[in-house]
Design a protein around this nucleic acid. Sequence first.
DNA 1: ACCTGAACACCGTTCAAGT
DNA 2: ACCTGAACACCGTTCAAGT
Lengths: 200, 200
Amino acid sequence: MARRSDHSRDQIHEMALSATERIVGEQGYQGLSARKVAGAIGYTVGTLYLVFDNLDDLILQVNGRTLDRLYARMVQEQAKQKQAKERLLQLGHSYIQFACEEPHTWQMIFEHRLTGEREIPEWFQLKVARMFALVETGLEPLAAQHSPGEIALAARALWSGVHGVCILAVSDKLDVVGVESVQNLTDLLVGNFLKGFMSS
Amino acid sequence: MARRSDHSRDQIHEMALSATERIVGEQGYQGLSARKVAGAIGYTVGTLYLVFDNLDDLILQVNGRTLDRLYARMVQEQAKQKQAKERLLQLGHSYIQFACEEPHTWQMIFEHRLTGEREIPEWFQLKVARMFALVETGLEPLAAQHSPGEIALAARALWSGVHGVCILAVSDKLDVVGVESVQNLTDLLVGNFLKGFMSS
DNA sequence: ACCTGAACACCGTTCAAGT
DNA sequence: ACCTGAACACCGTTCAAGT
């Protein structure tokens, strides 16, 4: 059992986040519990509550880090593509790829529900909004004839669509196997949507 | 406290399903527990396990009934539309409408995860497959130049997209308010997809 | 000051014991 | 035969008590 001053508050904070990521990665959101996290870092449950407000707080912070990793990757891989349309398709691919590589941590972002009357903190909502903004920016050069409002709507519709393919695929409701099949479905959705959107 | 022979096995079964639907409808999937269901029908927890294998079994049966209601409604409302394209858009509308009217029961279909190594029963998978088949049938008259395989893929992509809009909207991640906004997003997605799909 | 360990009010699931 | 009620192994959360 770790004793006082073995680790700083910040160290315990970081240790708890990593342990949570590992537990969720291996056993999924359902397999997560405060006692498991505490046990994994060699402290008691009580200690977690000195560093986090509650389990929702801990999970939100882990989800925030997942969103950061996902966002960074989308930005980076998108830059490799020169053409606007390819960039947009790449965003979809990166999203799918990430979700298939880390299904459990990715799914927790959407499986987690705040208990009771607690509200999603603003810093978290900003991380979500940033994702949509990325799609919006990617869509702009392809939608010269559309107003900013229309582009914003189209980005939401399109991205929700990609997300839908992804979530149904990851939770095995699509009867498709392998990352490639999911990528193909996304290409079909994004490709046809773009064709329609650009001609209207 | 209800005593023996107050209700038949089938009656207890039905009472438990209705009670679950009410509890989930009011408090969401998170608010559900075996003890709450038992209390609501005037029996002890133990009694539930005489009628259901476990909580997963109970939830699957409730989700099955939800899928049945949703399917029946989609079939019925679709029939009102004469044109093929309108029929397909109507399917999306009915789906969204249902999800917005009964968000908690609808969401439980996707929030629920089987515990441990248990597997989704075949009768349940069939109910899911039936939904996709409905979209496939709706898509066929609009896709004369496509092969059955392409249509099947397109139906999956399209329906996943509608589902994505729906799930993000219901879980408040889209910054849209009201059913109309969600319908508009769906129309945008389906409309543009169809335009692209039919011209390719 | 930091951390523990026990407590509280909950879970899902099982099963001997009562009627 | 049907149903209970207590038990078991778990939860999230709190907080007096120890070092």
